[in-house]
Computed example of a mutant assay.
Amino acid sequence: MSKQLDNQEQITQWFNNTYTKRGFWYLRPIKAYYIYLELLEAKADQKLLDIACGLGRLLEASQDYKVEPYGIDISDVAISKAKERFPDFNLQVANAERLPFDDNTFDLITCIGSLERMVNTDDALKEMYRVGNKQSKYCFLVRNSETTSWQFFKTFLGMKNEKGHQDAKNLKEWTSIFKTAGFDVIDVYPDQYPLMKKARRKYLWLKKVNYKEVIKSHEPIEKANEFLFILKKHD
């Protein structure tokens, strides 16, 4: 067995165990997923593919936009649980490095918090590029390697989740990876969910947090825990 296949099986098993033991506790609440659809300007009848869809939280949120939902995940446990809740969704077990779809199929493609966990990022991005149509937009949430928590706890203290292939890169590196793969960067935002939680604590009951609006951070984008990229295919 090749090292890559062995790594892939290990990652799959880790996610199967995680979804079996933790289920929705592993995921953010559904309100955290609306911002991705807002930034993509999702519209009715568009085809949306969520890569590493897990239990289908983003796809569930996408129904408010009346898109046609598709999802893939390497975890058969996740897909089985998602199908129980959403039998009408187009869900299947698949590897992002070999997507089971024709060229130019999708209008919107998302990959939230999972790209850095893939064994071969370049192959995964090539596949995502391939299945998107000419006007497609992409939303990726990826981890920053220059945070204190990553550099000290994950790297210096060796607390990275090796079985789940946990990884990270800085803003410049992610930008270069996406451009090399043929994408143009439309916008980059700091991960919105921590800012949403901070705003909620600040306002308490005095002001309702709008989870569909971008919240600005006072810190430089380079210091964000995760980066939220909105991309399109290079013209």
Rank of each mutant, 00 (worst) to 15 (best):
K3M: 08
Q4L: 05
D6H: 14
N7A: 07
N7M: 14
Q8C: 04
Q10H: 01
Q13I: 00
W14D: 06
W14M: 01
F15D: 07
F15K: 05
N16C: 04
N16G: 06
N17D: 15
R22I: 00
P29D: 01
I30M: 00
Y34Q: 00
L39S: 03
L39N: 10
L40I: 06
A42S: 14
A44G: 13
A44I: 01
A44Y: 04
K47E: 05
K47T: 03
L48Y: 06
L49N: 07
L49A: 06
C53K: 00
C53D: 03
G54M: 01
L58D: 07
E60F: 04
Q63D: 07
D64N: 14
Y65D: 02
K66I: 00
E68W: 04
E68S: 11
D73R: 09
D76F: 07
K81N: 07
K83A: 08
R85C: 03
R85G: 01
F86I: 00
F86Y: 14
P87N: 08
D88Y: 06
L91G: 05
Q92V: 04
A94F: 03
N95Q: 11
E97K: 10
R98M: 11
R98L: 12
L99K: 11
T105C: 04
T105H: 05
D107Q: 10
I109A: 10
T110A: 11
C111T: 07
G113H: 08
G113N: 09
L115Q: 09
V119H: 05
D123R: 10
D123Y: 05
L125V: 02
K126Y: 04
K126V: 01
E127D: 12
Y129G: 08
R130L: 11
R130V: 11
R130M: 09
V131C: 06
N133T: 08
S136C: 15
K137L: 14
F140Y: 15
R143E: 13
S145T: 02
E146C: 05
T147P: 14
T147I: 09
F153K: 06
K154W: 03
G158D: 03
K160C: 10
K163T: 07
D167E: 15
K169E: 08
K169R: 15
L171S: 13
T180M: 03
A181D: 09
A181Q: 10
F183P: 14
D184G: 06
V185G: 02
D187V: 08
D191A: 13
D191C: 11
L195Q: 05
M196R: 06
K197W: 08
K198N: 08
A199K: 14
R200V: 02
L206I: 03
K208G: 04
V209F: 12
V209P: 12
S217P: 01
S217G: 05
H218K: 11
K223P: 03
N225Y: 07
F229I: 10
F229D: 03
L231M: 10
K232L: 03
K233F: 12
K233I: 08
